[in-house]
Design a protein around this nucleic acid. Structure first.
Lengths: 212, 212
DNA sequence: TATCAATTTGCATGCACTGCAAGTTTGTCT
DNA sequence: AGACAAACTTGCAGTGCATGCAAATTGATA
């Protein structure tokens, strides 16, 4: 028994890993805000976190992941919501609650707006965010299709999930252009539009019949 | 030998550029299909098209763009459609016609399905496709907002455009999982869902009021 | 303390991509 | 044709991202 500082479950090793990861993510965000995402090198980030470049890549697969600093818990919470939601709750409502959860969490971290602006201003970051979102969406779609009792290839389930993501992106973009409108309000508006129908006058017959 | 073979408007120079571009795109797609997108190097593509690596990058900013082989004309045609569409045509209908145009064009090239599968199977390609789509969507959103007489930051305009893109992506994904369903049919289904409303039972009051 | 597993690190390597300074081709003007 | 300018291609040098590998360090355990 060599002092065994077993505070909770995690030992010293686990704690250090958390710290290193956090230090890298913090440094990445800070430097990206200071110098612009494109002008930050992995070397600088590693330097700021006082580890080697090689170690950086032991924690993050890409530079951008460190800047995004996504919280893996959010996906788990979302899946949990789908599992525990009351039966009468409609799917888009559930997604809306998920989004609110995430927004609230990010707001509490205080860095929502700065990180959000950074992401929306950098196509590269936006891409990586969407890329990692695609994986999340796949899992959420499966969960939703299951809940709806629809087959795995359900277009509706996939569309609901993906559209929710689209709504968030559109809302962020609009918030960036018109900061006086709250992000929450814009998200609400987008979700309501999706729910009610984006275009009641749509129909597919107004085309040239004679076409090949 | 100056013979000035001025066929139409484009001179020899313009033609050669087209040919080079096409040769690079063809080689990129072929090699990506043969060896998998991740195992193709720019050097191979350039070699196959018989130009230098440096020249490759004069035509495409990223390796992936060459594989995607996007046709810049499609965006111009789409913008044209928005300009010339009859006044009574609803916006999503116009987007639907645009999508049909593009699908028809890709089908006529015969490589729709193979390229489509390749893209859907490679997160990296999908990302680059979405990335270049984001730019297109920005321009289309501006055109649509103008047409609708709404302000530049219009959530509805942006949502219609982005959702159309999402619909296509969802349809491609579904087609990949269930190839017996036609891509056109799946696109139609997704558009109809968006038009009518994705979730008629959505509302935002079913939440815990007491929540912080 | 001895030992094993996890982690960090340096080193070498391959590939993507860019700027620059040639060289080459093409269009144009006389 | 001959000369000139603009466009296009190319090689080269250089930066940065990312990965594999093996040696060194550190943490947990007996």
């Amino acid at each position: 028994m060599i002092q065994t500082e077993n505070d909770a479950a995690p030992g010293r090793r686990e704690r250090k890993k958390r710290e290193t990861r956090q230090a890298l993510a913090d440094a990445a965000l800070r430097l990206a805000l200071e110098k612009g995402p494109d002008n930050v090198t992995v070397e600088e980030i590693a330097e700021a976190a006082d580890v080697s470049v090689r170690t950086f890549f032991n924690y993050f697969p890409h530079k951008e992941h460190a800047i995004l600093g996504r919280n893996p818990e959010h996906l788990e919470l979302a899946l949990e919501r789908f599992r525990t939601a009351p039966a009468e709750q409609s799917p888009l409502t559930t997604m809306w609650l998920v989004v609110r959860d995430v927004l609230r969490d990010l707001e509490s971290e205080g860095e929502l707006s700065r990180r959000g602006e950074l992401i929306m201003a950098s196509p590269d970051l936006l891409y990586h965010l969407m890329l990692s979102s695609i994986e999340d969406e796949r899992r959420l779609t499966v969960a939703l299709a299951e809940r709806l009792g629809e087959p795995a290839g359900s277009v509706r389930a996939a569309l609901i999930i993906s559209s929710a993501g689209t709504a968030c992106r559109v809302a962020m973009e609009a918030h960036k252009q018109a900061p006086e409108r709250s992000l929450r309000g814009l998200v609400d508006e987008a979700f309501q539009l999706l729910a009610d129908g984006i275009d009641p006058r749509f129909h597919r017959n107004r085309t040239q019949k004679g076409q090949a």
